[in-house]
Nucleic acid binder design. Structure first.
Lengths: 339, 339
DNA sequence: AAATTTTCATAAATCGTTATAACGAGACAT
DNA sequence: ATGTCTCGTTATAACGATTTATGAAAATTT
């Protein structure tokens, strides 16, 4: 029960292996010359291939052609809902491109990122989609200078000439601030991460400038939470803010939103009676919270779809000079938590 | 800037390519003969390899040896938290085995499962971890008869001689029932899926037998919810059960638990005052629910770890007759929702 | 009818490894 | 001195495809 090879088919059909190869990878073209295959023989070969249940050997194909039809996706943590959703979209869409995907999680660790990329390159991926993390800028720049197709996702990396898919993070927090300010609240504080990721930084800027627009510069307060012991850190922040008479919180990420709501709930602070909030990203957890949550929504599936499309375009030879940036727009979902 | 090959190293060191190959894949052994390499030359070759930044070409290696160092994992939906967590564990652990993982989601569709497995086989995976779905039994049996190493996860498939990692599903619902019955409740109803997946079936059996043990056979009521419009279906069930004076609900899965809680919350039915519940699996959503939830916890990370270990053992030639079944034990986490 | 082009097919050279048989040189025993 | 072993190494044939140059026959032009 040996696997059938191109050679078996050639024997069976009484033709050369080259011809079979041409038929199989049907674009049968060379640099300038175009190899045409006779319709009848072509069909005969296809038929025999089907009968013998021929499956091309990918390793051989890759060895000779240099193409793996595999791409690598490096993200923060595939067990995080946001990235898991993106992963799922990429997986589905890649199927259409007849391309398989391998994933890797960095845990926001630049060393791991570097490692993963190297492993993926050793595997011979045709291209990479990468979510940069703090400290990975230099490496990513060098990566972009190599000739491996690359698409950045979710977070910027300065001075890199490559395609990218980003959220309009500034607009996201503008929406959040407006939702509250338009209801007459002015003491709006922001809870963000300690990490200097581009998306966080931009969200902070969005918050700040929108506050200024409403003439609330003096009320600007950004709390930067370390990545570990989020709950404990937020609790401190919230307690002191409440003591100062804060009216509302805006959150910079999904995780922070959930942790913040839990803190408020544990403190017995009701929303929106005692304090208002606007969250970031949807979560099934919101459904079990007593009050419906106002939040900024990002088009999650678009991240995956657009990033993959850009990468594929890039791989199939689009000219390397026209790198595109896709800017996704956030949307405000209004609930009672901001009233 | 061509990639350096084994041949470059051989030239540089003035030895044959074969010797370099032996050194690189250092277990240099044949069927019976063992090829020893001189310590000094070995070190010299290694040194040169390091200097030239040698990266073995996986495609060539695979073509010749037949091994890909890649495994496939077929699960229900990688964007579902339970599976995402498992995926993450597998990913991390596979790194230690110097092995990459490709994932695929079936959406509980036997056709997709079959398709994914075929794609993975074409890719040449060394082995598979599969979460069966309804209707895939025949295909999985045929798969198990092939000589591709296979490990089943989370759900049974009858008459298949292969390794597997399962939860003790019966015990899981026994725990759930006990938690309620021990508090004096007797009208305990179960909410399960319509699907005849082995894990669901076993959970139903666990519920039923534990109810009998408490002498509550007459109160046994299992509600089977179709996979679509879960919320609406559960709502109907809950409303009529409440009208009949139900005291408590036990849920068969995570998704059902969340949906159930949301229904209760929307109906204004407070837990545990009006009705008691025991959930399945942890969820961050529980943290935002007013009452702490009593739930059956599965050792999620163990699924990934044990499945991968079994598969690796299987791949590296453990005798095919000794297939193992790992039975993971559930644990009860007690909150207020069952009081 | 000769010249030219087009069409279809083939042979042979890779791609970078691994696996196996064989081989020379000393060591050791006969 | 001859034969047998072991040790370290080499030559070479795969592995299964793609790619290129080349060729022979058929179709077209001149």
């Amino acid at each position: 029960m040996k696997k059938t090879t191109i050679r078996d088919i050639a024997n069976e059909a009484g033709v050369s292996v080259a011809l079979v190869s041409f038929v199989m990878s049907n674009q049968s073209r060379s640099a300038d010359k175009v190899y045409k295959v006779n319709e009848t023989t072509s069909r005969r070969i296809l038929e025999i291939a089907r009968r013998l249940d021929y499956r091309p050997n990918k390793a051989a194909r890759t060895l000779r052609s240099g193409k793996t039809n595999t791409i690598g996706v490096v993200l923060s943590d595939i067990s995080n809902k946001f990235f898991a959703d993106i992963a799922r979209c990429i997986e589905d869409r890649a199927y259409g491109y007849d391309c398989t995907v391998i994933f890797g999680s960095t845990d926001e660790n630049a060393g791991k990122l570097e490692n993963l990329v190297k492993v993926f390159m050793d595997k011979g991926v045709d291209g990479l989609i990468v979510v940069p993390c703090v400290g990975s800028e230099r490496f990513i720049r060098s990566l972009a200078d190599s000739d491996l197709p690359l698409v950045l996702m979710d977070r910027e990396c300065s001075d890199v000439n490559t395609s990218r898919v980003m959220l309009n993070n500034g607009a996201a927090l503008s929406l959040a601030v407006s939702a509250l300010a338009d209801n007459g609240y002015s003491k709006i504080e922001m809870i963000a991460y300690d990490m200097r990721l581009s998306n966080i930084v931009e969200r902070e800027a969005g918050y700040r400038s929108k506050m200024e627009e409403y003439g609330l510069s003096d009320n600007v307060a950004i709390h930067r939470i370390p990545y570990k012991d989020i709950y404990g850190q937020i609790r401190e922040v919230v307690v002191s803010a409440l003591a100062r008479g804060v009216e509302a919180f805006v959150f910079a990420t999904n995780t922070l939103t959930i942790a913040g709501l839990k803190v408020l709930s544990d403190l017995g602070v009701t929303v929106p009676e005692k304090v208002r909030i606007v969250g970031f990203d949807d979560s099934e957890a919101f459904e079990l919270y007593g009050t419906s949550i106002t939040y900024v929504s990002q088009p999650v599936e678009q991240f995956g779809i657009r990033a993959l499309d850009l990468l594929m375009e890039h791989i199939s030879g689009g000219d390397p000079l026209s790198r595109k940036t896709v800017m996704l727009q956030p949307r405000l979902v209004v609930g009672n938590s901001s009233q």
